[in-house]
């Protein structure tokens, strides 16, 4: 290991890599932000299978039967969130409200994915299509 006087040796390479990593993160961030359009529907998946689609415009409370437990989904004023769940970590509850296309709330223990989609009922905003939007 270099001693004090040499501590700047080769630091340019580190800075270059860090700048590169930062920019990559920024590109991902911009791609996600640009791809975020208000969605119209809430899609509920359990274990990769589509269970239901609800319009975001209609206030509603639904019990989702996940794998090994239930999550209470609330649609309110164009936003959707999980109000309650009997999973151990309850991370889905703390994930907050979603309303933009491609946003999701996920309960890993119950394999529940609540996702905002566009009119066609497709969650077309994947990582790839986000990137496309930015590139073109």
């Amino acid at each position: 290991m270099d001693k004090k006087k040499m501590w700047t040796k080769g630091i340019k390479r580190d800075i270059l890599l860090l700048v590169f990593l930062f920019l990559t993160g920024a590109v991902i961030f911009i791609a996600v932000i640009f791809g975020s359009v208000r969605g119209n529907f809430v899609k509920v998946n359990v274990d990769g299978r589509l269970i239901a689609i609800y319009p975001l415009s209609e206030n509603k409370t639904v019990e989702i039967n996940g794998a090994g437990g239930t999550n209470t989904l609330v649609i309110e004023n164009g936003e959707s969130y999980i109000r309650d769940a009997d999973c151990p970590d309850r991370l889905c509850v703390s994930q907050g409200k979603i309303s933009r296309r491609g946003q999701s709330v996920i309960c890993l223990p119950h394999k529940v994915v609540v996702e905002i989609t566009d009119e066609n009922g497709n969650a077309s905003v994947s990582a790839e299509s986000d990137a496309d939007i930015v590139v073109r």
């Binding site: 990559t24 991902i28 996920i106 996702e115």
Partner: peptide, 23 residues
């Protein structure tokens, strides 16, 4: 891994944030 297990690309959203928290 979560994308594969959950069979969804929707969580790409988190990558944007977790990229920086990871840094």
């Amino acid at each position: 891994a979560a994308m594969i297990v959950m069979n969804t690309a929707a969580i790409a959203w988190y990558l944007a944030v977790l990229w920086f928290t990871g840094m």
